[in-house]
């Protein structure tokens, strides 16, 4: 692990946010809320890694949706969202498509979330477009009520 920024001023994975979500009356999957571990907001295009695991099982990328500002993005489209701002005071919702959802009870939620800090180039780097990462990853046991 090289130089990175990690400013955790509150929980990244929001407690009590884990729940199943519905599509026309059927449980389509589960969702939870995530705060950015930083002191300021950032544009979604700075997100370089987003991955989720549930109860130690990695979730296929195609089943993850990142939801913010009333919009839903597939993981591969986040890199294009250079006008979509993630306010530090607002949680994003991550939806995981999993028909039937999760059972009630405690689940281990793993989040890998790494952004590049777009104003902090890596010191000493002569490469263009090389920035210090912001690590906003977390792992928590969350209760689905």
């Amino acid at each position: 692990m090289g130089l990175q920024m990690r400013i955790v001023l509150r929980d990244i994975l929001r407690k009590k946010s884990l729940k199943n979500y519905y599509l026309r009356g059927q449980v389509e999957g589960f969702q939870f809320e995530v705060f950015l571990a930083n002191y300021r907001g950032h544009f979604l295009s700075t997100m370089e890694q987003l991955a989720v695991s549930i109860d130690d099982q990695p979730v296929p990328k195609k089943d993850i949706l990142f939801c913010l500002n009333g919009k839903e993005f597939i993981v591969d489209d986040l890199k294009n969202q250079s006008n979509e701002f993630w306010n530090i005071a607002v949680p994003a919702t991550i939806k995981v498509r999993k028909p039937g959802g999760l059972e009630k009870g405690t689940h281990k939620v793993g989040l890998t979330l790494v952004l590049r800090n777009p104003y902090l180039p890596k010191p000493g780097s002569s490469e263009p477009h090389s920035y210090i990462p912001i690590n906003s990853s977390d792992e928590q046991f969350l209760e689905l009520g």
Binding site: R40, F43, S45, T46, K79, N80, S82, R116, N117, P118, Y119, P121, P128, H129, Y131
Partner: peptide, 12 residues
Amino acid sequence: AYIDMGIRSDRD
């Protein structure tokens, strides 16, 4: 304000 040079994924 910041100079967010690295907002875009493809270039500065």
